[in-house]
Simulated assay, not measured.
Amino acid sequence: MIQFTLKCDSDHRFDSWFQSSAAYDKLATAGMVSCSVCGSSKVSKALMAPRVNTAQPPETPAKPTRPLSEPASDAERAMAELRRKVEANATYVGGNFASEARAIHDGSSPDRPIYGEAKPEEARALIEEGVPVMPLPFAPGRKTN
């Protein structure tokens, strides 16, 4: 496992773990690495210093200060809580988000909260048509780092 400091095109910086450097390259090329702050998939490696742990012998693995599954900051905790609320109270419609949002807006589909994925041009078209949508600051679970 390797930890990289990453940054998105909006200059948000965050850390993420990958199986290897090649695994990061493959995921990033496929658009599967996204910013943990804004969700952008335009992510690159940021300048980072190597970590060298000299306090323990090589045969003893270093213990992390906190489990990776725990948020590290108030912002990460708020993001995790928002994600839990969205996933608990809305239906995931995947790539059908734009068509389903239109159907709900025009009354041909039952009114309910949904979330999913839309291309930027699809989202722009929904906004121009007056369909009430907003971007979420996270990617669906299957696309997280």
Score class of each variant (00 low, 15 high):
residue 6 L to S: 06
residue 134 M to Q: 15
residue 6 L to M: 05
residue 63 K to I: 14
residue 39 G to L: 12
residue 40 S to D: 07
residue 55 A to R: 14
residue 28 A to M: 09
residue 141 G to C: 00
residue 48 M to G: 14
residue 111 D to H: 05
residue 116 G to V: 05
residue 140 P to L: 03
residue 70 E to W: 12
residue 38 C to Y: 07
residue 59 E to V: 07
residue 126 L to A: 02
residue 76 E to N: 02
residue 108 S to I: 08
residue 13 R to M: 07
residue 134 M to P: 00
residue 43 V to C: 08
residue 69 S to C: 07
residue 132 P to R: 04
residue 64 P to R: 05
residue 141 G to W: 06
residue 141 G to T: 12
residue 9 D to Y: 03
residue 99 S to G: 10
residue 95 G to D: 15
residue 138 F to A: 01
residue 82 L to I: 10
residue 8 C to R: 09
residue 23 A to N: 15
residue 111 D to I: 14
residue 134 M to G: 07
residue 133 V to G: 00
residue 121 E to F: 08
residue 25 D to W: 03
residue 73 S to P: 07
residue 35 C to A: 10
residue 111 D to P: 05
residue 124 R to Q: 07
residue 44 S to V: 09
residue 69 S to L: 10
residue 62 A to L: 10
residue 3 Q to M: 00
residue 99 S to A: 08
residue 41 S to I: 04
residue 20 S to M: 07
residue 83 R to P: 04
residue 105 H to S: 06
residue 43 V to H: 05
residue 14 F to R: 08
residue 71 P to R: 06
residue 100 E to D: 12
residue 108 S to C: 03
residue 53 N to K: 06
residue 62 A to Y: 04
residue 3 Q to I: 12
residue 116 G to K: 04
residue 126 L to V: 03
residue 92 Y to V: 02
residue 7 K to I: 09
residue 97 F to K: 02
residue 142 R to Q: 12
residue 42 K to R: 12
residue 69 S to T: 14
residue 51 R to K: 09
residue 12 H to P: 07
residue 59 E to R: 10
residue 53 N to H: 08
residue 87 E to G: 06
residue 114 I to C: 00
residue 30 A to G: 06
residue 11 D to R: 11
residue 6 L to C: 04
residue 23 A to V: 03
residue 103 A to Y: 02
residue 135 P to C: 00
residue 97 F to C: 03
residue 78 A to V: 11
residue 84 R to K: 11
residue 11 D to C: 13
residue 55 A to Q: 15
residue 66 R to I: 14
residue 47 L to R: 12
residue 57 P to K: 13
residue 53 N to L: 05
residue 129 E to F: 02
residue 75 A to T: 12
residue 41 S to T: 12
residue 108 S to Y: 04
residue 106 D to V: 13
residue 41 S to C: 09
residue 14 F to L: 07
